[in-house]
């Protein structure tokens, strides 16, 4: 599990890009024995700037494996950007980056 997080300031807007390591299993796939692989996907993503929630996202299993996310929020260089996710099994991860 790991997250790559980047935030770049351009004209007062932070361009936030993130790549998360996650299998994003839909629950529809079957393994080699023909048994269904249980659904396992990120269900909640929170993006904070300077400790304040700016974007929260709810996801389903239709998001691709190792999800990519890009959003834009108002901000300035040096702002602290944090991304956290929680999946449907209750696992979670987070990463922080300083806007450059």
């Amino acid at each position: 599990m790991a997250i790559k997080l980047k935030a770049k300031e351009k004209k007062g807007v932070l361009q936030i890009k993130a790549l998360m390591n996650h299998p994003m299993e839909t629950g529809q796939r079957k393994d080699s024995k023909g048994e269904k692989i249980p659904a396992h996907y990120i269900s909640d993503v929170v993006i904070q700037v300077n400790d304040k929630d700016v974007i929260t996202a709810n996801w389903g299993a239709s998001i691709s494996k190792n999800p990519y996310l890009s959003v834009e929020v108002a901000g300035k260089k040096g702002d602290k950007v944090k991304l956290s996710w929680t999946d449907n099994k209750g696992e979670s991860d987070s990463a922080e980056a300083e806007a450059g």
Binding site: V13, V49, V54, I55, A57, I63, S64, P67, Y68, L69, S70, V71, E72, V73, A74, G75
Partner: peptide
């Protein structure tokens, strides 16, 4: 503060 944009 969030721009009306989302990409995934």
């Amino acid at each position: 503060g969030a721009q009306a944009m989302a990409s995934t």
